[in-house]
Structures are given as structure tokens and as C-alpha cells.
Computed example of a mutant assay.
Amino acid sequence: MSTRTLAVVSAGLSTPSSTRLLADRLTTATVEALPERGVAVTVEVVELRQHARDLADNLTTGFANQALRGAVDTVVGADGLIAVTPIFSASYSGLFKTFVDVLEKDALTGKPVLLGATAGTARHSLALEHAMRPLFAHLRAMVVPTAVFAAPEDWAGGDTATPGLTGRVRRAAGELADLVAGRPPAAPADPFADPATSFEDLLRGS
């Protein structure tokens, strides 16, 4: 059985959050689906709220610190990605978009991606199609057909999902598992691909 790595990006702002809850449901379903396709999986989770200050510093300085670089490398080096954001004003959150903005333009090319979103009302459900899907199409990611939206009424009691949400989660997870299982493992990230100090500076002793 071959092994793949799954990165999970959650842009929830609170602890606990419905965004992380949905991300966990999608992750569990994908982890259960992959062995059926002959693939073992390891999971790495990136909580963007922990990197909010790092992301702001990156925007103003142009450099990622060690913690943010680790998060970026996790996403770039993964064989598949689950990306979940809360929806504000009919679009993805600013925190989610900021993380996407610090990725290299070709970082997600061809990467299988499952999109998820949460909001306080089901009226925001189309944000997955008119905001998130075009964003990842621009990044040339391979987005699965089923995107999963969860409104408060989709959680029947506490963190228990309704049958409708459970069905959407399983369908989307199966689509992601098909894509991940059908691709060769991703090459590990090259730690020397973007050195903080140029080789010219090193030669000059800078």
C-alpha cells in the first residue's frame, strides 16, 4: 500500500469553530476512503488563526518566518488539500485569502483540492462556486466537483451532522480520494528552493 500526505487548511477564527468541525469531517471521510483505493495517508493540519500575525508580517516584509514557512511547505508538499474557510460578505475570509496570496503562483498547479465553507446562513452557499472555485481555478489546482457548504442547520445537534451534510461530505471525500490515489506521490519540498540569503551574498560574506 502506497502512502500519500493530506494537508488540511482551516481558516476558522474561533476555538472551537464550525469551520474546523467541517474540516475534520472532510478529513475523516477522506482518510476512510483512501485505504479502499490501496492508499495509506498521513494528515497535517494548518490552523490559519495561529499564523495571522505571521501572515501580516509576510505581507509587509516579503519574508515568511519559520512557523509560516512550515505551514506553506506542508500545503505545497502535500498530495492532496482540503481547504475550508468561513464566508464573510459572500466570499472567503481575509485570513484565508492572505494565506493563498503568500503561496508561489505555481504552488498548487495540478494538486487535488476539496473545498469547504461555513457561514451563519445558507444564503452564502454559492460563495463556494462564485468565489472559491474561481480562485483555485486561477491557481490551476484540480478541484473536485463536489464542494461542501455547512450552515448552522446542517449540524443537527452540537457537532452531529445532518444526513444531507454527511452525504455531501462522503461524496466529496470520495472524489478527492480518487484523484489523490491516481497521482504519483508529490516530491518533497526543496528547502533550498527559496533561500533567505542569496548565494551571491553568501560568497561576499553578507
Rank of each mutant, 00 (worst) to 15 (best):
V75F: 05
P152I: 00
D79N: 00
S89R: 15
A147H: 07
V113W: 02
L103W: 11
A117L: 03
T109M: 04
L81C: 12
P152R: 00
P145K: 05
Y92T: 03
P145W: 08
L126W: 08
V84C: 06
S125L: 14
A90G: 06
L139V: 07
G120L: 13
F149D: 11
D79H: 01
G94D: 13
D154C: 02
V143T: 13
P152D: 05
G157A: 14
A119T: 06
D79K: 05
D106P: 09
V100G: 05
V84S: 03
T85Y: 03
A150I: 02
G80C: 00
F136P: 08
L128F: 02
M132T: 08
T121P: 02
L103P: 09
G110C: 05
P134L: 12
S91M: 14
V113R: 02
A107V: 13
P86F: 02
G158A: 12
W155G: 01
M142A: 15
A150Q: 03
F96K: 02
D101A: 02
S89Q: 15
V102N: 11
T118H: 04
T98I: 04
R140P: 01
F136T: 07
L103R: 07
G110S: 07
A78I: 10
T160R: 15
D159T: 14
V144M: 00
L139N: 12
S91Y: 06
G158R: 06
E104S: 14
V148S: 00
H138F: 15
